[in-house]
Design a protein around this nucleic acid. Structure first.
Length: 391
RNA sequence: GCGGACGUAGCUCAGUUGGCAGAGCACCUGGUUGUGGCCCAGGGGGUCGUGGGUUCAAUCCCCAUCGUUCGCC
């Protein structure tokens, strides 16, 4: 079939918001999520492009490595260049020349990561801009306005992400606030206006609950009955010991509505992602592959490679013999190390290209294994590759 | 040629009224989880230009010498 015809066929195979599960292997699922910009096979990893750019890469690169959906950030794009400027340019897809789906984070995480610059109230989050110090009130309604201006395919509700170590009392009040915000979001932007509108903006809710099983369950129970297009697990990987993260993940993921996509936010390492899939999670995003690429930590079929190490100074072999990315096909480890040590821009590009290729290949293989009923083999192989990361 | 200043870690330089030799950067090794290319943690490294002298003890004081540099003739 002609590529364009094939794309149209795939797009018409489901309406935006449809999530079809094709196979299950244990708790792991292989499916397809339909969006306003085409289908997304799951499980999927979503490269992070905070300000409308996956750092160091162009859309051509993302297509080459088989990226199917990328992330943008409400808070960052609202501050710069401004969501209305993006809207007047035809939305983020047109502005950034990316024609596949975009998921936008709500800014809830920035309330956590930039916690010195914000104040949380019933109304919303008051931010002090990290760029110029100006104040901005982000309400649940406002962040959806922004995300609609951006033309987001998958909008995230505003949530409160509490730091590791937050006590039960505060966390209990926090999940109720996050629930109220989610319901305000849905009420202000009903499904017929978002998913059913011209832009087909899906809306995902975010469950929280810190590191308390009862609160994780409560958060899911409060949100699950409502008409969201997907459900996320937020607030993990915020500094807790690994076993605790895996425990809460295994506790929470199976409770999320089975027929909707499940999204584990901000996670994680290759093994974290395999662990998530094994618990029934469908979608992941993480800055790790791109940030670590820029800092010389590369993920390969042989495990983690610190390309800055001196031992690679005269290593003429490819970074990863099993990888088909441009960097692995073309350059030696010695050259990649030289580029990194020299601070060359090409180092950011090649390393990012490689790490994202590795991540996308990994979830693609996960999908194939689920369809074949052999996902446990892939999980075991990944766990063996990262013995120190295992729970 | 005369006079002065300076020679301490790979680099730029502190410091010691004479008592186990310091910083920043660089280098090496980790870390990085809903992104500020940042940041964090740990580590290796010096016959204190060289040779003498004084002293219990000299990188420090004295002499000589080599080097760098500035000024003057």
């Amino acid at each position: 079939m002609h590529p364009i015809t094939a794309t149209r066929a795939a797009q018409t195979a489901g309406a935006p918001g449809d999530f079809r599960i094709e196979a299950e292997d244990g708790a792991a699922r292989a499916g397809v999520l339909h969006t306003g910009h085409g289908p997304v096979p799951t499980p999927i990893f979503m490269p992070v492009g905070t300000v409308g750019s996956v750092k160091a890469l162009a859309p051509d690169d993302l297509n080459a490595l088989n990226a199917r959906i990328i992330l943008g950030n409400t808070y960052h794009l609202y501050l710069r260049p401004g969501d209305e400027i993006v809207a007047r340019r035809g939305g983020l897809h047109r502005f950034a020349a990316w024609d596949k789906p975009i998921l936008t984070d709500s800014g809830g995480y920035q309330a956590f990561s930039l916690s010195g610059l914000r104040k949380i109230s019933e109304e919303g989050v008051l931010f002090r801009s990290h760029l110029d110090g100006s104040k901005h009130l982000f309400t649940p309604e406002k962040v959806l306005d922004i995300q609609r201006n951006l033309g987001s395919d998958i909008m995230m509700v505003l949530d409160e992400c509490v730091p590791y170590g937050t006590d039960h009392d505060y966390t209990a009040r926090s999940i109720r606030l996050t629930t109220r915000w989610a319901l305000r979001s849905r009420a202000a932007f009903p499904a017929e206006m978002t998913r059913g509108g011209a832009a087909h903006n899906l809306l995902f809710a975010i469950t929280q609950g810190g590191f308390f099983r009862d609160l994780r369950t409560a958060s899911v129970e409060e949100l699950a009955p409502h008409d969201f297009d997907g459900f996320a697990i937020g607030g993990l990987s915020v500094g807790e010991p690994k076993p605790e993260m895996y425990e809460l993940l295994a506790h929470t993921a199976p409770q999320l509505p089975a027929g909707k996509p499940r999204y584990l936010m901000g996670v994680g390492t290759p093994l974290d992602i395999m662990a998530g899939i094994r618990c029934g999670v469908d979608m992941f995003d993480c800055v790790l592959p791109t940030r670590n690429a820029r800092n010389g930590t590369l993920y390969t079929s042989l495990g983690k490679v610190n390309i800055k190490r001196r031992e690679f100074a005269e290593d003429d072999g490819p970074l990863d013999p099993a990888c088909s990315c441009y960097a692995c096909r073309t350059f030696s480890r010695a050259y990649l190390r030289h580029l990194y040590v020299s601070g060359e821009l090409l180092s950011f590009r090649l390393n990012s290209l490689h790490n994202l290729t590795h991540y996308l290949d990994l979830v693609t293989r996960a999908r194939q294994h689920i369809l074949a009923g052999t996902f446990e083999d892939l999980y075991a192989a990944t766990a063996a590759l990262y013995p120190d990361d295992a729970a």
